[in-house]
Design a protein around this nucleic acid. Sequence first.
RNA 1: GCGGGGGUAGCUCAGUGGUAGAGCUCCUGCCUUCCAAGCAGGUUGUCGCGGGUUCGAGUCCCGUCCCCCGCUCCA
Length: 510
Amino acid sequence: MVRSLEKVDMDKIVSLCKRRGFIFQSSEIYGGLGSTWDYGPMGVELKRNVKDAWWRSVVWERDDMVGLDAAILMHPRVWKASGHLEGFVDPLVECSWCHRRFRADHLVAWDVYGVNRGSEWLLGQVADVDPPNNQPSQQVLYEITGLADKGGFGTSHYKISDRPIEELIMTGRLPCPVCRTLRTLSPPRNFNLMLKTFLGPVEDTASTVYMRPETAQGIFVNFQNVLTATRRKLPFGIAQIGKAFRNEITPGNFVFRTREFEQMEIEFFVKPGTDEEWHQRWVQERLQWYVKLGIRQENLRLRRHGKDELAHYAKDCYDIDYRFPWGWAELEGIANRTDFDLKAHSAESGLPLAYFDEETKEHVVPYVIEPSGGADRAALAFLIDAYDEEPDPGQKEIRTVLHLHPSIAPVKVAVLPLSRNERLVPTARQVYDTLRSRLRGLVQYDDAQSIGRRYRRQDEIGTPFCVTIDFQSLEDNAVTIRDRDTMAQVRVPIAELADALAKRLEGQDS
RNA sequence: GCGGGGGUAGCUCAGUGGUAGAGCUCCUGCCUUCCAAGCAGGUUGUCGCGGGUUCGAGUCCCGUCCCCCGCUCCA
């Protein structure tokens, strides 16, 4: 079974998602609403399975984790304390000539002075985006000072100094870092990435609240509650799955970046000093989760954030990236948030948020390791990685099949009578009824059209096993189990069918 | 926000001013044996939306929404 990424293009995925009921565009009959998507009957099963697998892995299978489900709407002061009100703002600068946009805080600017006989004068200004070395390039210097025409002279004649970016932009003498045009950069405009709404029926008197931009804060503000209620000792973690909202400037790539999305977040509280070790452990733990559920290792990578890339709360961060058809992109970030959040909420609320260490008889503010993944992104990655088109032996048709791990496949088993012949129906319905009650997960019944067509339909939604009832079944009380990946068939007595299927579905779990 | 491409049946798309189409899918019936099979039938459209020009608009004009690629960013 060779699955190459070249076969996957997003149009085919999007098309399959709609055709088979995985993902629909939201509000489609009204022309759609940008960046919002609805999960159909297959999609909701897939996404639930992904979330369940995550929950099982990080809560049920561990003894150092508990769960939580906090409200989406929280007190506005939460966002003041967390820094989102101030810091979750991208100051954007736009060049009116080339229409490129830059984050002002990613621009680095220098004044360039010429020096002659002890006096100095401003030759010009230079901007660059995330330069590798903290200096403007020689080429840029020549262009901005016009020295190239005069044959140029050495850098010893320059004096370079940093200045606040905003001030430089206002002077109009700072060129666009890409097209180098002068006087075209707009003043920085703040894009607050939080969605606002109003609490209370009358808009003018209602209070402004925010739709949470991350589920994490619900965990931090409940830290003391959980600690008291569960009598946990460090280290321990709190897991939460829930919707979050961000006014992304540029959403896109199907469900990859949307303004409403679902997070699977852990805040793992550890003693200061042990945080770096726990960080490494969680990075490996989380990476292996994707591998275990079937994502090919070569399509996954770890990427450590550069210092300049870190969020305002983070000391260190690794991304788990997946090789999407459009390139490497983040599935999950595992950050070391230090004691930033607990201390911030403690300061804002005036309440101590700390842990009493019985050994040292001291209060400590735990450090926090945060594995934070996107449920929608994970589901999409599983879908893409499972997608395959195989040549159909003997036929010219291609077989489209999702090689989904059984535990996340939307339909576990399909029950297919060989034909609609009425003699087959009672046995087929009986098998269907039994499997529905005995198996964990969705079981489908399909008797429409030829058996081959029905196999292909199930392949396309990634159903691991099909059970076929034929006329011989009426004689020997046995049915056929057909394997999605190999298309091989084995005959099993009906009495043993549920166990045989359960074994196959769970046997591939590890 | 800017540039480029696009929106016609469930899907992929054809249709450059004159009766809305094709392939696949889907549905019904027949078939005692297994991989989109065969035979016989059948359903499907606010041509993204709103205006305008015209005797007549899927087609031309204006506006608008949405999708894709790029610039940006994160889960």
